[in-house]
């Protein structure tokens, strides 16, 4: 396998992008809320960022941030009434939200309807232009322009992913993270411990939406083309599967899910055609056999435990 093959690089880029998406669904799920509106938020971010870079020449990074921010504002608006809703209602309401957003984008002029927006300047091209300012080109690294762009895109995504993961882990180990966990485990007990449950649920919902919107912008500027159908129900299912297969107890679960589900169809070419079947089967099977997902809080503990026991046994044998 040629590592610097632009196609392979793009596959890895998508794994990283899906990693950020997985974090976004994880944070919402961390408070026990199942949102089926993540594709909707993603599309908002994607369209806002695309329109900004294409029509208004806004610098890429600002466009991406604004896309995420506006997705967050919309989450605030629809979250206020819907977050009072319990489990199933929230799921249906957010599913409905996603569909309404899709229909609106299908019919708006500025989004160019079903044809979508094409010809966006890719992240790779933007970064390459910057690089050229410093006097470096692909040749300086012995790579073609196409390869260089793909490498730059991947590096950019890795950097963002690292940053998001770093901040998520920080949040997880803070007062806020503990509040999320407590609310997920038992809302009544969380209230009795003095936690403003509604506020934290809203916060988690908004963080999830901002990240999803941000991913939408990234997605648009990697593929350079978006249509409303990129963010349909199948996208919802895809994002949800990350958390389902990996589990949503700790962030490594959804990340593992995103990695496996994005890699498998690429590695096993046969699977590509049956990608959706794979998602469906995984959802049914995992729920039946391991409803908390494959990776839980105890996974690592067990691993360490085994190692510790092994060490203890060896120590005993040594004596």
């Amino acid at each position: 396998m040629d590592l610097f093959n632009p196609y392979n690089l793009q596959v890895i880029t998508f794994i990283v992008l899906n990693g950020i998406l997985a974090i976004s669904i994880y944070i919402t799920l961390a408070t026990g809320q199942l949102s089926l509106g993540h594709a909707g938020f993603m599309s908002i971010g994607a369209y806002v960022a695309s329109i900004l870079t294409k029509q208004a020449d806004v610098p890429l990074i600002f466009a991406l941030l604004l896309g995420g921010l506006i997705a967050g504002v919309i989450a605030l608006l629809i979250g206020a009434p819907t977050l009072k809703l319990h489990g199933l209602y929230l799921a249906i309401a957010t599913l409905g939200f996603g569909e309404v957003v899709r229909v609106i984008f299908l019919n708006m002029e500025i989004t160019n309807g079903a044809l979508g927006i094409t010809g966006l300047k890719s992240i790779g091209s933007t970064l390459y232009d910057w690089l050229k300012v410093t006097g470096l080109t692909g040749d300086s690294f012995g790579l073609s322009v196409l390869q260089m762009k793909a490498v730059l895109t991947l590096l950019f995504l890795l950097l963002l992913f690292g940053l998001v993961l770093f901040l998520t882990l920080r949040l997880h180990r803070s007062r806020i993270g503990r509040a999320f966990e407590a609310i997920k485990a038992d809302e009544t007990a969380a209230k009795a411990m003095g936690l403003p449950v509604a506020y934290y649920k809203m916060l988690a919902f908004i963080i999830g939406a901002v990240l999803a919107g941000f991913c939408g912008g990234l997605f648009a500027h990697i593929t350079t083309t978006i249509t409303p159908d990129d963010f349909n129900y199948h996208k919802v299912v895809e994002i949800l599967s990350f958390a389902v297969i990996g589990g949503s107890e700790i962030v490594w679960g959804p990340l593992f899910g995103a990695f496996i589900l994005t890699t498998l169809p690429e590695v096993l070419r046969v699977l590509a055609e049956y990608k959706m079947i794979m998602y469906g089967a995984i959802m049914v099977l995992v729920m039946a056999f391991r409803p908390h997902g494959l990776i839980g809080t105890d996974t690592f503990a067990k691993l360490f435990d085994r190692r510790r026991k092994q060490a203890a046994r060896q120590a005993e044998e040594g004596m």
């Binding site: 199942l34 489990g87 959706m276 998602y279 469906g280 089967a281 959802m283 049914v284 729920m287 409803p291």
Partner: peptide
Amino acid sequence: VPHLASLISTIGFAILVEE
């Protein structure tokens, strides 16, 4: 099982039937 597990498993089943 968690409250929302059955919702997710029926979503999975739906995907299988659709495919």
